[in-house]
Nucleic acid binder design. Structure first.
Lengths: 339, 339
DNA sequence: AGTTAGCACTCTCAACACCCGAGTGCTAAT
DNA sequence: ATTAGCACTCGGGTGTTGAGAGTGCTAACT
């Protein structure tokens, strides 16, 4: 791993220049634009070494070099200087969160994804809070008419779930209220994944004379827990079209189709080790899906309240501006955590 | 308007063939593939006339002809034979709606849009129910903690709206209940657009001693009414990428960006004259937005219950399979109406 | 020994010429 | 009125060429 400082400088120059220009960068350019006091010839030699070591590749003889995935990895790990956000940008981020304090969580996330895609010009993916890990807060059943009611479930993370259910006509308003408040008492404070079939079985027994009604309610509850497909929120899906590397319809198509398959996206955003704090960068093939093997992903967990509840990610071309993206993601995640 | 029957046949042949092949069709092809008992030369003459009359255009000399927008219009109005759906397709549609009876409305619409885009291979746009035209059904406020509550609003069309609001700590549960049931009584059965500022002012007076609390609730109510941006649901947004006419990134981009601007889409789906029943087809420039001047839109109103509540549309290239699309849309709208 | 200048070499890309085939329009024959 | 025949047109594919960018190597320089 021990690259000479000179090699480091050159590698850095190549990466930053390529990130800006999307053009293979040659020795001339490095010599001219980046004040290494060296002649092109020397730089050529060093670049040749770097290529041999696997940090750079040549698209073809007689083109400049571009970073390999290994090169990007080295850059990200060792070379990148984290850029500070401009004050205007910081202000913009703060402003978006200013009035969001008491909004519903989905609304907040939607805005966040828009903000991130706007600031970075890449595509933003946000994995919503995991229902299982949220705590039950309150449940209510609103009768709609004689046969149907609306089941409303709220978690402490501000997650709201609505479901229309059938009510038996024989059920009086009083009974309904009793049942609801009983359920609220029993479920209070439990995290959703604690509401197991066993517990539900218990509740069923206790309320045996309402079985028919409950049957459906519980099935619904169980379903929505089992499904627990965490919602993925997208922002700026068309931003990739601005990237020169996606001039080809085929690539665009496979990516855009991926964007419609939320379950796949969820796996993409899943953190490898839940424990790791801070920002994770996945470059090209380091992502599991082949649809994004030409993309990089900047990932971070975010909190709402004190718990880590989800993941935000910014997806751009491998040639993305890592420094800026990391800064933006960091800032946004911080702001989210303060809500 | 009076085309000879022979010209009609030829025009029809050209349109259908071009819809299938996306290639300009020449006189040979018409003679060979469509049993008009005529030689290419004769057909050439007729096609020449049709071009003069504006129904066909030549991309360049020595290419076949393709229909002009006028040509498509004539085809759609006079020539198109409405295709009957295959039994499997009908069954598929029915099946999707089978289990949807008591779902929430948004869920139904989401499924519908997926279904439509799947069956047609085009992009599906659905304009959700208009809040203003829906009738207020029920309102409930669930206290979440000492300071906040969840305001749940349900309309008769099955539309559910959630909003977190602040509650004054001084408010007792009883008081809250009284207020809620008072509001329910006053608002019952009114269509949302009847809940004007005047009415709200009245309510305010009647509940003057809760002004602070109500202030916020009402503002929220008013906001969500004023905003009343009808939601647009999309399906199969990447389907356009399969169309050869969108091989160019520029076009794709402008369309996909349009798909992110829901307010624009809403105007696109708005019906010109609310009264007109049945299916409307808008070809190319007949649509107001220039982003879709190379697209056609097949529109239909749909009902939920007895009221017309929204619009479904299928957006494809001008060269779309109108016959099939119309059949599918018709069928789906019918099924929706039966829910 | 490390650095640099010079030069021949390689490769891509854009421009240009070229040809082929599909399709037309016109004319003359049926 | 219809059709066969034929000259003409034009787009798209193919091959060639030249310019430009960048390299690698060698020999000279510090």
């Amino acid at each position: 791993m021990g690259l000479s400082t000179r090699k480091k400088h050159i590698l850095q120059a190549v990466v930053t220049d390529y990130i800006k220009s999307a053009q293979p960068v040659g020795s001339r350019t490095v010599a001219r634009r980046y004040k290494v006091g060296l002649s092109p010839a020397t730089i050529r030699n060093e670049m040749s070494d770097l290529e041999e070591a696997g940090y750079l590749v040549q698209p073809h003889t007689s083109a400049g070099r571009i970073p390999s995935q290994k090169g990007y990895r080295y850059y990200v790990d060792q070379l990148m200087e984290t850029s500070n956000l401009g004050e205007e940008e910081k202000a913009e981020i703060r402003q978006v969160f200013e009035y969001k304090k008491l909004q519903e969580i989905e609304e907040i996330i939607r805005h966040t994804s828009r903000l991130l895609s706007l600031l970075t010009n890449y595509t933003c993916l946000i994995l919503g809070p995991q229902l299982k890990k949220s705590a039950f807060k309150k449940l209510q059943i609103m009768p709609l008419d004689t046969q149907r009611g609306l089941l409303v479930l709220v978690t402490d993370t501000g997650f709201v779930k609505n479901n229309v259910i059938n009510l038996p006509q024989t059920l009086s308003g009083n009974e309904l209220n009793r049942i609801v408040s009983y359920l609220n008492r029993r479920l209070e404070g439990l995290t959703i994944d604690k509401i197991t079939s066993r517990l539900i079985g218990e509740l069923r027994r206790d309320l045996y004379h309402h079985i028919k009604f409950l049957e459906e309610t519980f099935t619904l509850l169980e379903d929505s827990l089992a499904e627990d497909e965490r919602r993925v929120f997208l922002g700026g899906t068309t931003n990739i079209l601005n990237q020169p590397e996606f001039g080809d319809i085929g690539k665009v198509k496979s990516l855009l189709s991926l964007f419609e398959q939320h379950s796949l996206l969820a796996t993409l955003l899943a953190r490898p080790v839940a424990g790791v704090e801070g920002i994770i960068i996945r470059i090209g093939r380091e992502n599991i899906l082949e649809e994004v093997e030409e993309c990089s992903l900047v990932l971070a967990s975010y909190c709402l309240g004190k718990e880590v509840v989800g993941t935000v990610g910014v997806l751009g071309p491998i040639r993305m501006d890592y420094a800026k993206t990391v800064a933006v993601v960091q800032q946004v995640v911080n702001q989210l955590g303060m809500l």
